[in-house]
């Protein structure tokens, strides 16, 4: 039976939710981690994401893709963490130095230089570009799915991805 149908059936909701988390839980963790960088923050945001998914399955009418819906919740929770960190008077993008320092603290000592450089390049991007890039590059989501998850138009996302790609490429050329 499909997860979507299970979530819609009250008697199978919990089973469907567990299956959903089993299938997408780790992907959601990495998606959040790529936005918030810190493991502790990623764990907290993943917890909130899971609670919101479970509580709002009743309101999920099956419109759009299930993956877009759960990525939307996860993205919102991750951004919420960053908003709290940034405070009232600063933008999320002002957190880049802090995120960079968290990356350096939490990355493995023997981490591959190119892999680490890519993460640094991503942190340097404006959050919108970073989210689009990671959803395309790591999660293989289509522009339509990302549009559903972020509420942005496909055209805007394509432009954001293009800018992100060029900036990342330039950074890697200069730093590897």
């Amino acid at each position: 039976m499909e997860i979507r149908a299970m979530l819609a059936d009250p008697s199978l909701k919990e089973k469907g939710f567990r299956l959903l988390m089993q299938r997408y839980g780790k992907a959601l963790y990495w998606h959040i981690r790529r936005i918030v960088v810190s493991h502790d923050d990623a764990e907290d945001a993943l917890q909130e994401t899971a609670i919101k998914i479970f509580r709002s399955t009743d309101s999920y009418r099956g419109e759009g893709k299930l993956t877009s819906w759960i990525y939307r919740i996860a993205t919102n929770e991750a951004l919420q963490v960053l908003r709290k960190r940034a405070g009232l008077f600063h933008s999320i993008d002002s957190l880049s130095p802090q995120l960079l320092s968290t990356l350096e603290e939490e990355a493995q000592v023997d981490a591959d230089k190119a892999v680490l450089a890519l993460q640094k390049a991503l942190i340097g991007l404006p959050s919108q570009q970073r989210i689009v890039f990671t959803m395309r590059y790591y999660d293989d989501l289509t522009y339509e799915e990302i549009a559903e998850a972020t509420g942005k138009s496909v055209g805007t996302l394509k432009v954001n991805y293009h800018y992100a790609y060029e900036k990342v490429k330039k950074y890697l050329q200069e730093n590897i």
Binding site: F17, R18, G25, K26, H39, E43, L46, L116
Partner: peptide, 18 residues
């Protein structure tokens, strides 16, 4: 990803969170 979290660790984390 350049982090040390293993697959097993993440499986447990997801299970706990669920």
């Amino acid at each position: 990803m350049p982090y040390s979290e293993t697959e097993e660790y993440l499986d447990n984390l997801v299970s706990r969170v669920t």
